[in-house]
């Protein structure tokens, strides 16, 4: 504790000496120091972006280069499967549209085919006809 004032005094003297030295640098030296500092800052940020982009591109290129046949086959397969799916959908829709158009436009309405009263009536009529037939 007793030597604290001495240490503070010593540090103060060093600071004064450095300030004096910095203040008396030549213009050329100051410019070079400034440029060096800017250069160092530029190099500090650049590698991060450069490395990440480069590595991503590199991985992509390497993957494609090594597996391009497989990738192209997969893409072709996917396009083909999609085409088949679309074609099947259209075919199914066309079949249903054909039958539904005929059914809905017919003189006998769709409800007739499931009208229990009508079906029962037809059943009774056919039974009566059978009964009236000569044996």
């Amino acid at each position: 504790m007793s030597n604290m004032p001495d240490e503070v005094d010593f540090a103060g003297r060093i600071r004064d000496a450095l300030n004096h030295g910095a203040a008396n640098l030549g213009e050329k030296t100051s410019v070079r120091l400034y440029e060096a500092r800017c250069d160092a800052l530029r190099h500090q940020a650049a590698p991060v972006a450069a490395v990440s982009l480069a590595s991503f591109g590199h991985v992509l290129a390497e993957t494609f280069h090594h597996h391009y046949r497989g990738i192209l086959a997969l893409v072709a397969l996917a396009v083909g499967a999609l085409g088949v799916q679309l074609w099947q959908n259209e075919q199914e829709a066309a079949e249903l549209a054909e039958i539904d158009s005929a059914l809905l436009s017919d003189e006998v309405p769709p409800s007739a085919y499931t009208d229990q009263g009508f079906l029962e009536w037809l059943h009774r009529l056919s039974e009566r006809e059978e009964e009236s037939l000569p044996e």
């Binding site: 829709a93 549209a97 054909e98 158009s101 809905l104 309405p109």
Partner: peptide, 26 residues
């Protein structure tokens, strides 16, 4: 559903070729 819409769209395509009375029934 999409499948149902596709069917109705195809029925709509057939519609102009139907007779007037058929169109009304549909």
């Amino acid at each position: 559903e999409s499948a149902s819409r596709r069917k109705w769209l195809q029925i709509a395509e057939r519609y102009p070729k139907m007779r007037k009375d058929e169109q009304e029934r549909v």
